[in-house]
Nucleic acid binder design. Sequence first.
DNA 1: GGCGGTTACTTTTGCGCATAAGTTGTACGC
DNA 2: GCGTACAACTTATGCGCAAAAGTAACCGCC
Lengths: 359, 359
Amino acid sequence: MITIKEIARQLNMSTTTVSNVIHGKAGEVSDDTKKKVQDFLDKVDYVPNINARNLAQNESKIIGLALKARADKYENLIMDPFVSVLIGGVEETIRNAGYFMMLYISSDTGEIMRHVSTWNVDGLILFGMLNDDGIRVSEKYKKPIVCIDTYSLEGLKHFTNIGLDDEQGTYDMASYLISQGHKKIAFLSDNMNGVDLARLNGYKKALKDAGIKYKETNFLKIRPRAEDIDESLEEICKRAPEFTAIMCVSDLYAVTLMSALEDRGIKVPDDISIVGFDDNMLGQLHRPALTTVHQDVKAKGVTAADTLLKQLKGQKTPNQIKLPTRIIVRDTVKNIKTDNKESYKDIFSKKRNDSYSCK
Amino acid sequence: MITIKEIARQLNMSTTTVSNVIHGKAGEVSDDTKKKVQDFLDKVDYVPNINARNLAQNESKIIGLALKARADKYENLIMDPFVSVLIGGVEETIRNAGYFMMLYISSDTGEIMRHVSTWNVDGLILFGMLNDDGIRVSEKYKKPIVCIDTYSLEGLKHFTNIGLDDEQGTYDMASYLISQGHKKIAFLSDNMNGVDLARLNGYKKALKDAGIKYKETNFLKIRPRAEDIDESLEEICKRAPEFTAIMCVSDLYAVTLMSALEDRGIKVPDDISIVGFDDNMLGQLHRPALTTVHQDVKAKGVTAADTLLKQLKGQKTPNQIKLPTRIIVRDTVKNIKTDNKESYKDIFSKKRNDSYSCK
DNA sequence: GGCGGTTACTTTTGCGCATAAGTTGTACGC
DNA sequence: GCGTACAACTTATGCGCAAAAGTAACCGCC
């Protein structure tokens, strides 16, 4: 790899002159030499050594994207189709801004932070991995941090968060179910923290506003670990007849559940209505096609990256951005209203099998 | 960030001594000072400046992972759930070896190579993006390159390739279909290059070995672009009755097709048998569950990374690795053999709904 | 005609690290 | 008691770049 020094030697001039041409410092070098240098640069296909540049400038032009890897390999976040879309959004945005992306998958916040400071990363996007320990460690490294989908209250105080209006999403969906005559609505999720909790709350609120009482028994817990998913599903399917509809915290759960119900001869939506959250391929391709809450995952990645880039430029950014959701009505909800005077379909346009991308 | 120089100053010793302790150069520093330095390092939580280190050592400890971004945004490779699993495999492997991963999504090989040389990347993994132009450009940068799933003949000459025994996979699957009495078997794919061609060839070979003639009309072309997927499916569904089985080049196509067939009242597997290739969530969760060819995507990533790491250590590696496939029999193939004396099930064990990971 | 200002450069310094080369001090063999 | 070998250091150098500081020539102007 040719260096500035070598170029300067061959052109019989100083390195600073060459450097000035490279950086387009107009007025500091005559048009004549500028052209001479530029031609030479093109000829030898000069590429700067980024390590030297970063060392001299004390910056890295790297943005780190840290993804939580759960301890259980079956649940590794990276395995979720969702994630690659998000990565794509981040990468595209920062590349267009002249930054590079270093991807890091780990559940050890300390390790992440060490990595970040080793590489002198300019900024950090955290996805799914902000706990209180993480916050404590990250305070030491004064780099801008943007979180995606964090619900850590402590974290919200310190960092920008890019999230979703989860509560509104489930509120709308539960309201839709209620409008279709459903009263016995279960909520299926695997925990009561973070995103899951926010979604649960939206659902609860809709019930409350409709005058329906929420009972603890409405909460169906799914255990997604590979070893016990079967017994988990068995139990949920057994309890399904208690309800006329089940709201699932994600499309993945919804589709998983539908498959399990189908295996046991329970028909969706005739026997029970099922709805999801996310609007991914899984639900789009399933038959009956899944009625769900749509979120724009790529926009999440793009917004997170944009926000971080703004912070790097010293611009102020809101410390909480909630992207909107909208419900997508497909074929997994049955209208069980006896009084059919006013159809909800008039309000929520029924959109069948939205086009999606393939391969 | 504290530097070696500063540490040396505070401990009243030379930077070389500190550096030696950091690098565990035994015998060059007394146990006494070693302990003193080590304690101090721990106390101040020293992290080396990687740019300085790389500059001094002329290496980067970075491995680049370049993914092809197709021009059409709907087909961006990163959008495929497949990809995140692969990324995960690569990341895990190189991290364990002390390397970092820089992710790059682009379709401009020149751009990738410039990036690679800018960052002084130690090695490169290319996924889905090796064309002849790419080869020409990459020759200039003498870095080890490992390709995943390339079928560029020119590329195979120059670089290591990690692929799949695609041909064997479709050969086995076609043989299975034939054993179930199918003779009119279509092959569905969107082109006749690379992976698709290899899979087509395995299918053709199986037909030939069974004495069935392959006709050009057996090839169903699916056009996956978002704009014309619907008409593409329409046409394929119209032609479906010509066949008793359709082999799809991927699970995504298989499930997409099944949904389209279902929408038109065509029952799988009663009216027509469908099989896929990949064995991903989509097919596992679909009902009927998809009979398909299994490939271990994570292993692909891991193997590619392992191979590259070996090359970096100067070890010899085979210049072509083909990972095995196996067929997974689920519920989308109907046995239409009139003579039922010997069931294929005795040969290919029927495995129903293999456990899969959730969320 | 000396002086500020400008243009078009060059020289020099330092970023933080690794390491080659140099400097002690001391134990040991003969 | 002198040379040698070695342990335990320190000093000095350079990686490639950016940028501060320096220089030299020229121009116009009161």
